[in-house]
Design a protein around this nucleic acid. Structure first.
Length: 419
RNA sequence: GGAGGGAUGGCGGAGUGGUCUAACGCGCUUGUCUUGAAAACAAGAGUCUGGGAAACCGGACCGUGAGUUCGAAUCUCACUCCCUCCGCCA
C-alpha cells in the first residue's frame, strides 16, 4: 500500500512503476475517484459540522426556537444521508484500486518481462565438471532411498513426496546447520503459525492478486506460502520503539503453494512441490531508505555465505521489473547450479518493501523525535528444503555413485558420504 | 459445539442521549529549572480532510457497517475480532 498523498503527488512515478512491473492498474481512474472521494467527504463533513452546531443550539434553545430548528434539521439530515449513499461505492472502488497500486521499484531495477531478463550480478564457484555421466537428483535420491515419489503421489497426489532415510536426515542436518549459522548472525528463531487469517496475506501483498496460488480452508483461513506472512503479522497493529530495531527473525515453517498455472512446469523431482519447508530471514528496521538498502544487501549476503559454506556453485541475479512483486522495491534471487539441467535454479529471494507491507499491517514505531512512523520490512530466504537437496546431491555426486556431504554439514549429518 | 462478557488515543482506563474541543494515570516530545541528568512545573503530541507559501485556522473520526434521534462513544441490529466458563481433543 502506498500513501494516497504520495500517489497524488507522484502520479507519473507510480504509472512508470506499474509499467515497469507489468501491472495493470488505472492510476488516472484512481486519481479521479480520489478527487470524488475527497469532494464528497468534505461535503459530508461540512454538513455534519453544521448539524453539530445546530444540535448544540437546540440543546440550549427555548421550546419555540427548538421546534423551528428541529424542522430545519430534518432536511439537512436527508441531505447528509443522500451524500453518504454516494460515498459508499466510491470508497469501495477506491479501496480496490489502492490494493492494486504497485510499490515504486528502485532505479537500479532493470527493465524486463520475466526471469529471462534478470541481470546476473555475481557468479561464484565453478560449474561442476564430471569425469563420468552424472545422474539427476531424482534418480540419485531414489537410488539412495532418500525420497519416495510413488508413495508421495499415492498419498498426496501430483507433486507429492516422502523424504526418508538420508533424505530426511540431510534435511534435518540442513535445518540444524542453518539455524545455527543464521543465529550467529543475530537472528532470533521463530516458529510461526502456518494457518493464518486472510488479513495477513493482504498485509504481505499476496492478496488480492495471488489468490489462485494460496490454499484456503473451509473456515476461510489460509495456508501460508512463506513464513514471512505470519512473521509480519506478528507485529500487526502494534507500535514499536525505534530502540527495538533492527528486529531480525529467523522464521521456520512449512510452506504451501498451489502452483496454479504451472502444471506443466518442473513435473519431475523436488524442484517444484506443493508443500515444503523454509527457513526465512525477516527484518524490520526504521523508515530509512539507506537502512533498508543496507539490510537488503546484508541478508542477501548472509544467504550467499551460507551457500558458499556448502560449496555449491551459484549466481546472484538482480530481478527485472517484470519479475518482482507488487510490493517489492528491489529483489535479488540466488540461483544454484543444477548439473542435470545445465542451468541455475532459484533457491532464495531477498526483497525489501519500504513501508508497503507495514502500512497494510499497520506496524508503526516511534522514532527518535517521538513521531509515529511506519517501519520498513525486508525478507530473504535462508534455505528452502527440499529444493536445496536438488543441487546438493547433483553437484556432490561421485564416480562411485556415492554423494559427498559438504564439510559444513558433516557434523550435523554425522557422516561424510551418503551411500 | 454450547453459554456469557467485551472492543475508547502510544498504553491502562473513565464516560450509558446534549460544553466530549473524550476525565484521570502512565509513557512520549519540547520548554523552565540544573554543570548534565533525575524530580518538579508548563505546554504539546494521532489519522483523514478543507483553506494557506508557511506559521496556523476549520472540519470529521470512540472496532466496522447500518438504524433510532433534531443530536450517539453512550440506545438497537448485523458483521469482525478479543476474553471467560462448559464440552470435545493432541
Amino acid at each position: 500500500m502506498l500513501d494516497i498523498k504520495f500517489i497524488r503527488e507522484n502520479a507519473d512515478l507510480v504509472k512508470e512503476a506499474a509499467r515497469k512491473k507489468k501491472i495493470k492498474v488505472d492510476i488516472d481512474r484512481l486519481l479521479s475517484i480520489d478527487d470524488e472521494r475527497r469532494a464528497l467527504l468534505s461535503a459530508v463533513e461540512g454538513k455534519k459540522a453544521e448539524q453539530n452546531k445546530v444540535s448544540e443550539e437546540i440543546a440550549q434553545a427555548d421550546s419555540a426556537r427548538r421546534e423551528e430548528l428541529i424542522t430545519q434539521m430534518q432536511t439537512l439530515k436527508a441531505d447528509i444521508q443522500a451524500e453518504e449513499e454516494k460515498v459508499k461505492p466510491i470508497m469501495e472502488e477506491w479501496q480496490a484500486l489502492m490494493l492494486q497500486v504497485p510499490n515504486i521499484p528502485d532505479m537500479s531495477v532493470p527493465d524486463g518481462d520475466s526471469d529471462a531478463d534478470n541481470v546476473e550480478v555475481k557468479n561464484w564457484g565453478e560449474q561442476t565438471q564430471f569425469s563420468f555421466t552424472p545422474l539427476d537428483h531424482t534418480e540419485l535420491m531414489v537410488r539412495h532411498k532418500m525420497v519416495d515419489f510413488e508413495r508421495g503421489t499415492k498419498v498426496h497426489g501430483f507433486r507429492g513426496y516422502y523424504l526418508l532415510g538420508d533424505g530426511a536426515r540431510l534435511s534435518w542436518a540442513i535445518w540444524n546447520y542453518a539455524n545455527e549459522f543464521f543465529q550467529t548472525k543475530g537472528f532470533d528463531p521463530l516458529l510461526v503459525p502456518s494457518i493464518v487469517r486472510k488479513s495477513n496475506l493482504y498485509g504481505t501483498g499476496h492478496l488480492p492478486n495471488d489468490a489462485d496460488d494460496v490454499y484456503r480452508t473451509q473456515d476461510d483461513d489460509y495456508l501460508i506460502g512463506t513464513s514471512e506472512v505470519s512473521t509480519m503479522g506478528y507485529f500487526a497493529d502494534e507500535v514499536l520503539d525505534h530502540a527495538q530495531f533492527p528486529i531480525k527473525f529467523l522464521a521456520f515453517s512449512p510452506c504451501y503453494r498451489r502452483e496454479a498455472g504451472s502444471h506443466g512446469k518442473d513435473v519431475k523431482g523436488l524442484i517444484r512441490v506443493h508443500e515444503f519447508f523454509k527457513v526465512e530471514q525477516v527484518v524490520l528496521c526504521e523508515a530509512s531508505h539507506e537502512e533498508s538498502v543496507q539490510w537488503h544487501e546484508t541478508i542477501n549476503r548472509n544467504t550467499e555465505e551460507f551457500i558458499e559454506s556448502l560449496g555449491i556453485p551459484y549466481r546472484t541475479v538482480l530481478n527485472c521489473g517484470g519479475d518482482i512483486g507488487q510490493g517489492q522495491v528491489k529483489k535479488y534471487d540466488i540461483e544454484l547450479w543444477v548439473p542435470d539441467e545445465q542451468k541455475y535454479r532459484e533457491i532464495s529471494s531477498a526483497s525489501y518493501f519500504h513501508d508497503f507491507q507495514t502500512r497494510r499491517f499497520n506496524i508503526r514505531y516511534r522514532d527518535k523525535e517521538g513521531k509515529m512512523r511506519y517501519a520498513h520490512s525486508l525478507n530473504c530466504t535462508a534455505i528452502p528444503t527440499p529444493r536445496i537437496l536438488v543441487s546438493l546431491v547433483e553437484n556432490f555426486q561421485q564416480a562411485d555413485g556415492t554423494i559427498k556431504v559438504p564439510e559444513a554439514l558433516q557434523k550435523y549429518l554425522g557422516k561424510a558420504h551418503i551411500g
